[in-house]
Design a protein around this nucleic acid. Structure first.
Lengths: 214, 214
DNA sequence: TAGATTGTTAATCGATTAACAATC
DNA sequence: TAGATTGTTAATCGATTAACAATC
């Protein structure tokens, strides 16, 4: 890994795309790929593919291209797919349960180990083998388990509180679905899924398309 | 609106953030805000706030700042919040139902008018007042209703098929939750929510944090 | 070897930031 | 009027693209 200079967010956002497409190629039995092939699928230039990889080392062979399997492995390692991330879901409502049922996360090494809520109605229910526990037992649970990621699917007004609690208990990353932005300590990673922002951007694009037709 | 030159995606992504923060200010009864105030909350520079608005016109008053209410109105209009977008949900599984239950979309003018699936078990069920219909009746339904947006929450392998169907029936925008990327005609807008990509980016950040601690 | 394609440096482009005149 | 803050142009920075030598 080229040390020191930090890799830009734009590059990181593309890595999973490479990873996904490489897994498709592998499934198709294709063992070799060029930066040109990759670039077409991800809709960027071949230059950028090579520039992106260059941030982390050299994974190809001049005059030949890249071996699919080892390249996928390398990118996977960069992304941390070589280790399992244990997750808890804070907020076992519709969205929380939908995420718990999303089998493909587990295939990628993201394992849900607990779900928490305050609603007495859903506590004790079992979703995909995971029992929904009361939020009050979170501290005790995290004492017994090594949890890496907290998924925040509680209502907006409780999001910060849930995140703060998880952080104080030593969480490493937060995957936030509540439409609030909050600050976290530098050593806690955070990714936001802002559904309504995405929807508003879509609305903008639709409006723009309508305007350009007229 | 400054015509001709297309507004960059980065700007569009920030508009909903301004909009959201303005709605918070309004709720707090604050009527006036400066680019400096706004910039602190969105974590950008005051320059960028003004530059962003400059793409669309001038909404402020020199020496004074911006009136919260009218500014929010303007940004809302740019984003198309002045009209209602009718949505259908294709795929009434956990995620589809979670989105249907997400009340805040409707407050922003995104109205779910139908849900579709192929699973006989869920067809006929009613979620938040919306009956789940069979996918086969989609064409007939869209003939009777004016639908703007299709939300794709079917499994990955059926995503393209569902999108193609909706496009052929005249959909204006696609909100895609399936982890596949597909091409759509230029006059169809699309926004992707790539959950596993976000999760992988989170994994990267966590790994990076761990590395920098050592 | 000849052809191909990477790794890597240099050039370009676009987005962000700075500066400041306009003006409330 | 004096002070403040926008609107807008110019400077800077970073990311993307191009180019090409290295080399398989």
């Amino acid at each position: 890994m080229r040390d020191e200079k930090k890799v830009s967010g734009a590059v990181i956002k593309r890595l999973p795309k490479y990873y996904r497409y490489l897994s498709v190629l592998r499934q198709m039995g294709i063992t070799r790929v060029s930066s040109n092939d990759l670039s077409k699928k991800i809709e960027i230039t071949p230059s950028q593919v090579r520039q992106d990889f260059f941030n982390f080392g050299s994974f190809g062979l001049q005059g030949y291209g890249y071996e699919v399997e080892p390249l996928m492995q390398e990118i996977g390692n960069i992304l941390g797919m070589d280790q399992i991330n244990q997750m808890i879901i804070l907020g076992a409502g519709n969205l929380g349960q939908a995420l718990a049922n999303h089998a493909s996360f587990e295939k990628r090494g993201f394992k849900i180990v607990g779900m928490f809520d305050v609603n007495p109605y859903c506590i004790g229910q079992v979703v995909r083998g995971i029992e929904i526990m009361h939020f009050d037992s979170l501290a005790e649970f995290m004492g017994r388990h090594s949890v890496d990621i907290a998924v925040i699917t509680v209502p907006r007004e409780h999001a910060r509180e849930a995140a703060d609690k998880a952080i104080s208990l030593g969480i490493k990353g937060i995957w936030n679905f509540a439409s609030v932005e909050f600050e976290v300590p530098k050593d806690v990673a955070i990714e936001h899924i802002h559904l309504s922002e995405s929807l508003m951007a879509l609305s903008y694009k639709i409006k723009e398309n309508r305007a350009s037709i007229r």
